[in-house]
Design a protein around this nucleic acid. Structure first.
Lengths: 230, 230
DNA sequence: CGAACCCTTGATGGCGATCAAACGCCGTGG
DNA sequence: CCACGGCGTTTGATCGCCATCAAGGGTTCG
């Protein structure tokens, strides 16, 4: 990996507090791989031989059932994914593919487990990371069970809006079909829902979003102060 | 807690491998509490001051949105719950109530965090526990997004059937209204779905279930060999 | 320039929610 | 002991959200 990126990766919550010598050992055996867009690098049911860390690009986690697939989560840089499978040495529950060209750091699972066993600070960080991801999925499940599609879209846009520090205008992070699947709806319905939001403070035209009235959007989305605090 | 139960709790995966002296310290400061049925002991948004371990009884985890609530998970003995919130010292994402009279062991979160920091084996066990729960929620979310209600019910019954070592007849673990909410459907629809299953190898009459043709039920449920392996 | 592919828009249908009512069970109190 | 009321479950009727099917427009890429 590029020399200037080592500090950036080291400063990830997962690696920030660990012992430097253990970190050097892990990074020494890790390797960076560059993937083109639309490449499935992990398949459901496979073995989790590596912890993946997305350095750059965009990754989609999804599940497959027969011929149908559903997006579960978008992974943005810089963050790790499939930590749970890597740590417990089990099969992947989700597949992963790149949405854009991506650079991904691969850390052998076995090495990671060894390091966690030896380094208490790393163990704590991994635990925190996993706990955060757990809580995020609980949020997704809640969202799915409690809200209908329009509300989910509205909440999604509110979240993006917040993530981007309240920028009035921004781009959707992925193709609409992917967003639709992530939100548990069809592309057709997402399109209609986007039009509907024009009357509720959000104008979505193609891939660009304008938040013109956050209050109105919140009135529709009714974000939960506890569940939706990220 | 009763003397004869200490070995049972100690043999939980979470506590089995830790150092005996740390375990004694934790258990020394833990206390057992008895709750009547239908008592909400944890409210969404509250602080996670204790790790809870259900020794005996049945607990429902659920979320509240305005006036509506949704069941997220059933907790059966003996197992811990809300580990993620307790470890990260954050607010509860879910509420918890007893469904039957229950005995619950309460371990101060702060004490737990300290013990995890000192005891690598406990840290590893906690990590595994959390990873397992993470994977279970991923399964729930997949189930929710990919299947419709009848399939979800069928899969639920298959899971119960397996859990009970293939017993031909068994009781539903909770009231149907709770099961319905857990499966993301209304009580009315669950009732109809139960009748429908009579033609697919499962006879549900009131709270009792008979699996008369598992193959037929599986044909309807189409369980995923990866996702549904628990 | 053509062929995918994505997005959009419209028409239709079905799954499941909602509303409504009756039944059975069980506790309480007369 | 029985009457009553409450609650969970069941069954029926209806509604609405959203999926599906279908077709057209726009963009990208070979």
């Amino acid at each position: 990996m590029r020399a200037e990126e080592i500090p950036e990766i080291s400063s990830l919550p997962l690696f920030a507090t660990m012992q430097p010598e253990v970190r050097d050992e892990i990074f020494g055996s890790a390797f960076l791989q560059v993937f083109p867009p639309q490449l499935t690098m992990i398949e459901t049911g496979g073995r989790a031989d590596f912890l993946h860390i997305l350095i750059d690009g965009l990754v989609e986690l999804f599940t497959v059932d027969g011929s149908r697939e559903v997006t579960m989560q978008l992974v943005r840089p810089v963050s790790s994914f499939i930590l749970a499978a890597a740590y417990t040495d089990q099969h992947y529950l989700m597949s992963a593919r790149t949405l854009t060209a991506s650079r991904i750091l691969l850390i052998p699972s076995q090495l990671l487990r060894g390091a966690i066993a030896r380094d208490g600070a790393l163990a704590a960080a991994a635990m925190t990371e996993l706990a955060m991801r757990y809580r995020n999925i609980v949020r997704s499940l809640t969202d799915m069970k409690m809200r209908q599609t329009l509300e989910r879209l509205a909440n999604f846009l509110l979240l993006e809006h917040t993530r981007l520090d309240g920028a009035v205008q921004f781009q959707l992070p992925a193709e609409k079909r992917v967003i639709a699947s992530l939100l548990g709806m069809t592309a057709e319905n997402l399109s209609r829902a986007c039009s509907t939001l024009a009357g509720h403070g959000a104008i979505v035209s193609g891939p660009t979003v304008q938040i013109v009235d956050r209050t109105a959007l919140e009135a529709l989305a009714r974000p939960d102060p506890v569940v939706d605090r990220h």
